[in-house]
């Protein structure tokens, strides 16, 4: 073992006898990935195992799989997918389209940071409605950071009027397969929570509750939310490349103030 070694609790590789830079076997959390897991393990089981020490139960894997379907494509109106399409339409590299989707989808408006903040709220309030009410009523932190100051309670839609049908469907579907306790409680208390927040629930709020029910930390939930929303961004970026820039909206401009 060398002094310059990378330490990990996730991954063990054993070298081929003729080449220390080629692995003969790879173990994820002790499980032989290519020898045993491949063909038997579900993608979502592998995903959970990467972030947690123990393999998930079937119920946990079902929950993440259902959530992955719900998050796979935010659709072309979503800013992150819009960003990926802006890459695709100009013929930008595949990675740059995904980087664009990640950067825009990282934020506090429907993005990864919103999920992070919502999960912090779950950790602080749990299934205590009064704790949620107190949190919504409390002033937001004034601490300066790289992130813009939060503008709305995380997990709720600042421009919403009522809970969109897909959000209700996702909540019902995920609460049904969830080991609990947050998703079933959220489904029960949705109207009360929305009244306290003054805004309807958003899909990011459902995702945050699901990640919390799966035992993930806010940091892990943020990462997984970023990851699970990429498929739609990728597909829409490639689609727009095919349509070409003449069919992609450029929008009008109204210059205000000097120079107009």
């Amino acid at each position: 073992m060398t002094a310059d070694a990378i330490r990990t609790r996730i991954w063990l590789e054993e070298p081929e006898s003729d080449n220390p830079f080629a692995a003969r076997a790879a173990y994820c959390r002790g499980y032989d990935v290519y020898g045993e897991m491949l063909g038997r393990a579900r993608w979502v089981e592998m995903l959970i195992l990467l972030f947690r020490e123990e393999a998930p139960t079937t119920a946990e894997a079902d929950l993440l799989e259902a959530l992955a379907v719900a998050l796979a494509n935010p659709g072309p109106r979503d800013p992150a997918v819009h960003a990926a399409m802006a890459g695709g339409v100009g013929g930008s590299t595949a990675a740059s389209c995904l980087m664009a989707a990640l950067a825009v989808g990282a934020g506090q408006y429907a993005g990864g940071r919103e999920v992070f903040l919502a999960m912090e709220a779950w950790n602080a309030c749990g299934t205590d409605l009064d704790a949620w009410r107190r949190r919504f009523a409390a002033p937001t932190s004034e601490e300066v950071s790289i992130w813009p100051a939060p503008r709305h309670p995380p997990g709720f839609d600042p421009h919403g009027v009522s809970t969109p049908t897909p959000v209700k469907q996702a909540l019902a579907g995920l609460a049904f397969v969830s080991p609990g306790p947050r998703l079933p409680w959220l489904e029960q208390q949705r109207a009360e929570l929305e009244a306290a927040a003054g805004l309807p629930l958003a899909l990011s709020g459902v995702a945050a509750a699901a990640f919390a029910d799966l035992g993930f930390t806010p940091e892990q939930g943020e990462m997984l939310h970023l990851l699970l929303r990429l498929p739609g961004a990728a597909a829409h970026a490639l689609e727009q490349r095919g349509y070409g820039h003449k069919k992609f909206p450029f929008f009008a401009v109204e210059l205000e103030g000097a120079g107009a």
């Binding site: 060398t2 070694a5 330490r7 054993e14 070298p15 220390p20 830079f21 002790g30």
Partner: peptide, 10 residues
């Protein structure tokens, strides 16, 4: 190479 990764897991 493989020896540059120190496994601390189960």
């Amino acid at each position: 190479d493989c020896s540059h990764v120190r496994y601390d897991g189960v």
